[in-house]
Amino acid sequence: MQVLNQAKALIEMPRRTPARAHLPELFRRQEFDDRLTVDSYWRILSNMVNYQERLTRTFAALVDPTRRAILARLERKDGVSVSELAEPFAIKLPAVMKHLEVLDDAGLVTRSKSGRTVTVRLRPQPMRAAMEWLRRYEHFWSGSLDRLAAYAESQEAQARNRAR
């Protein structure tokens, strides 16, 4: 996380420091495309950092089985109070609160307070991004395995014909 924070600091930096004036020269070196303006480079860098960071947070939040159970419950019934949410779990309220904090940080739930009641709602968008990311790999492997199966089956048929 420290490096990501550093990157973020650097992304924000050129907008408010004189160092910005030195950037074009840096980006004219061969590793950067001349046509990229400084602003578009920062935008790309910023998007990459944010995307990776968001994914990492989503996966880290989803890795815990209690947190997944909380999300599953919210999927069945959204907009419930913290105490109602905590009820079926064999852990104490402060522990549930902690999990909710992690889920909130990952953008997977929202908490809104009204009087003494905190209402928790599901926010599924980060999960969709994570699923899309996994789907890319699934697409790669299911296509590749189709081709592998076709190739192996033709090799097998050839071997049988030779054996005859």
Binding site: F59, V63, E138, L145, L148, A149, A152, Q155, E156
Partner: peptide, 16 residues
């Protein structure tokens, strides 16, 4: 969470 498993049946021997 961060792994992907696919299972396929293929009409060829394992060594092929």
């Amino acid at each position: 969470m961060t792994s992907l498993t696919l299972v396929r049946r293929i009409k060829a021997r394992p060594q092929v």
